[in-house]
């Protein structure tokens, strides 16, 4: 099902983005975990009090009690959502639609390799990239927390939390991948592959502000990723994550089937 030569080539193509996003995540995660300090917490809470809507829109709430709660507030509303999402958008588009649009997909399809194998390999490349980013973030969070505040981090909860985050990004990746398989024109592939996740994120920001806008949460899949619920051990939060995972599997499979059956004007 996997063509190793293609997998290797595409993983090489992912390296640059992975390094850039890892660097950005490293910067933010280390700074923010370093800021976990009762004194500075007051400052941040001050911001939240001063402009609650703005801070809430990026998922930052006051009074994060534990280190993990603090991380949820300041990392899982923006940084760890946006950067892996950007990775999904950029790679998702490049793995299929860009090749079809440019015509170099002819090099891959004019060979005794099934189209299903090509699409599955490209999917694996995308999933591998997401896995690496989340895995790296987890290790990084662990190291930053343990070096700054030994023993304060609930590791099981962190793993659960990032498991949920992984499900979310696999789902975002599946939207980008499906869009890439569906459209032969990068204009549309990027339009839908980037447009849908970004629109959903904007709706999520709206919903976070609260009030009437909170109804927006019923229109965005980001609601299914519920970090507070996961660290509180709520079963509903776990079910939501599994829904994301199931959705991702369906969309990936759909993408592969569509690519297998579509006409290619190469």
């Amino acid at each position: 099902m996997t063509n190793m030569a293609l997998y290797k080539r595409e993983m090489k193509g992912s390296i640059k983005l992975l390094v850039i996003f890892s660097a950005v995540i490293t910067l933010y995660v280390s700074i923010i975990i370093g800021m976990y300090d009762p004194e500075l917490m007051k400052t941040l809470d001050g911001f939240v009090e001063a402009m609650p809507e703005l801070m809430a829109s990026v998922g930052m709430k006051a009074d994060a009690a534990t280190l993990l709660g603090f991380m949820v507030s300041y990392l899982y509303g923006f940084i760890l959502l946006i950067f892996p999402m950007l990775f999904c958008i950029l790679r998702g588009n490049a793995l299929i639609a860009k090749y079809v649009d440019k015509g170099s997909m002819a090099l891959l399809t004019a060979a005794p390799v099934k189209r299903r194998t090509i699409a599955f390999t490209q999917m694996k490349v995308l999933v591998s990239g997401i896995l690496l980013l989340i895995l790296y973030s987890t290790i990084l969070e662990f190291i930053c927390a343990e070096s700054g505040f030994p023993g304060e981090l609930d590791i099981t909860s962190l793993i659960m939390l990032n498991g949920g985050l992984l499900c979310l990004h696999l789902f975002i990746g599946s939207i980008c991948f499906l869009s890439s398989c569906l459209f032969s024109d990068t204009k549309y592939s990027i339009g839908f592959g980037a447009g849908i996740p970004i629109l959903m994120y904007v709706l999520q920001m709206l919903a976070n502000v609260g009030g009437d806008a909170e109804t927006a949460k019923y229109f965005t899949f980001f609601t299914l990723f519920h970090p507070d619920g996961i660290i509180a051990g709520e079963s509903q939060a776990a079910v939501s994550s599994l829904i994301l995972l199931a959705g991702a599997i369906i969309l990936y499979a759909l993408g592969i089937i569509i690519f297998d059956r579509k006409d290619l004007h190469l």
Partner: peptide
């Protein structure tokens, strides 16, 4: 059965687009 057909086929596209990298 395109993958089986391709095993024994050589193709030059009308407009060749390579991996430019």
């Amino acid at each position: 059965e395109r993958d089986k057909v391709q095993a024994n086929l050589g193709y030059i596209p009308g407009e060749i687009s390579f991996f430019e990298d």
